[in-house]
Amino acid sequence: MDYLETTDVTKQFANHLALNKVSIQVPKGTVFGLLGPNGAGKTTLIRIITRITAPDSGEVFIDGRPSKSDDVFNIGYLPEERGLYKKMKVGEQTMYLAQLRGLSKADAHRELMIWFKRFEIMSWYNRKVEELSKGMQQKVQFISTVIHNPDLLIFDEPFSGFDPVNTEIVKNEMLRLKDEGKTIILSTHNMESVEELCDNIALIHKSQVVLQGKVFDIRREHRTNIFRFRLRNDDFSLEHPFFTLISKESYHEFIDIRIKKQPDIATNELAKLIFDNFDVVAYDEEIPTMNDVFIKTVSN
């Protein structure tokens, strides 16, 4: 079942169509990647989902019903352009943001304690934000996004400013939240993390959804019929109408080749041909990364 759905959402700014009939479906309890080049309209779509702006036409459904103003208390949004009040103390500020998101003072304090312990930042409680490093501030921001235990989480470039260790912590937190049944929208340019975390994606390009579906389905659909073989041979000089050779490299005592199969040839036939002629150590089909899919879709 879809937790979040937008239908034909359109938004026009002065002389720029930011969103053109954008429809996305985000299944409950999954991580959904919202991808697209800069200026494609991702942030506008997120602002419409979080009710910061209203669409010119189209609708947003949350949990099967049209979204209403109270829903913002059930959304945690970590914007790409994010900051904190520099002169405020970390604890005070987190309390403030938690209360703004609908928690009572007591609840806010209890949740704050849980999260500060989990992220091991208890000692920062009375430090001013301006004394913290960027990565530390990001942690505080992450906590203030999730502290009110919302069912829908929207992270816009959540990993920027994090070192690899903290990136891992945040990734694990996101997966933990997913396991708790939360629905997560992840907007990022980091395609590796998309492959790692996302179940579904939508790619927005020039204000429209150009690609949507399960990550693995999309990657498979973008197959290019390229196969990789690692051979224990001295050379590879076979020519055959089944394939064309793309690249050949020697790697220690092996030879790595990439060949493109003719579309009408079955994979088994190609494999048999190579296995019969060479000593094959390993082989697989080259499935494009999300990075490849992204570049290919956007540059077309």
Binding site: T50, I52, V72, F73, I75, Y77, L78, P79, E80, E81, R82, G83, L84, Y85, K86, L97, L100, R101, G102, Q141, S144
Partner: peptide, 17 residues
């Protein structure tokens, strides 16, 4: 200050501008 420090993006997701 709110605009420059980008806190406003965080704020408007829970408080109407």
């Amino acid at each position: 200050e709110e605009k420059k420090s980008r806190i406003v993006e965080v704020m408007v997701s829970s408080v109407k501008p």
